[in-house]
């Protein structure tokens, strides 16, 4: 475990807590894409299949439980909670995210490190996480006005991915047994690039202290 990895996990944890805080305190999920949240829940479900079979560390297991618990409780809030679900704008959140799931599954069946159920599901979760933010970014473009918490949520998600890339670079040089992991590296890099333009507009809006406006 290195500082970049820990910072990445903490940033990721912050992003889900910011989202839960927003939904729980102001009882609204305006501007949040349910499709992205569904994809994230699927990412965690497919990636953490080994949670009960392989014990790495207490930290690892606790964080997996937190990410699983938070992503499914966000789904519950947005779909079941009588007040919160009324603020979900399904007319705007129209990204056909089913079209993302199947290609990722097919790709995981074709390109993986080992053709076993768990390895294919893990690889599927890596590919799916790379594109999971798309419905949310499309929704932000549509709703144009991005409220602070939503902006912070997406920013923290992008920062977590960026820190993971630095973590991989650090591990490559620091750990002698560390070998190449092209699937994870390329997928993680593409995922982080998706945030690039959002970062540009977000940082500008923070610098100029104006509301975040994404170009149409």
């Amino acid at each position: 475990m290195n500082i970049f990895r820990l910072a990445g996990d903490m940033t990721h944890l912050m992003s889900v807590l910011v989202l839960l805080l927003k939904i729980h305190t102001i009882k609204s999920c305006a501007g949040i894409s349910l499709k992205t949240q569904e994809l994230y829940a699927l990412v965690f479900a497919a990636r953490y299949l080994d949670i009960f079979t392989h014990y790495y560390s207490l930290y690892n297991t606790v964080m997996k439980l937190i990410f699983l618990g938070s992503s499914f409780s966000i789904l519950w809030y947005m779909k079941r909670h009588k007040v919160v679900r009324r603020s979900y704008d399904k007319d705007q959140d129209t990204f056909r995210h089913h079209f993302l799931v199947l290609p990722c599954l097919v790709l995981a069946l074709l390109i993986n490190e080992k053709f076993t159920f768990k390895e294919v599901m893990w690889t599927f979760s890596i590919y799916l996480e790379a594109v999971a933010i798309l419905p949310q970014l499309v929704l932000l473009q549509r709703t144009r006005n991005v409220d602070n918490l939503t902006g912070q949520y997406v920013f923290l998600l992008g920062a977590y991915r960026g820190l993971y890339i630095i973590n991989w670079i650090y591990r490559y040089f620091a750990e002698p047994t560390y070998s190449t992991h092209w699937i994870t590296w390329i997928s993680g890099l593409l995922q982080t690039l998706l945030y690039a333009d959002f970062f540009y507009y977000y940082i500008n809006s923070v610098k100029n202290n104006v509301r975040l406006q994404l170009p149409a």
């Binding site: 990895r5 990721h12 790495y56 690892n60 964080m63 990410f67 047994t177 560390y178 992991h181």
Partner: peptide, 10 residues
């Protein structure tokens, strides 16, 4: 295993 794995990551 000889090579490290990324399964210890989240």
């Amino acid at each position: 295993p000889s090579h490290s794995s990324l399964k210890d990551e989240l």
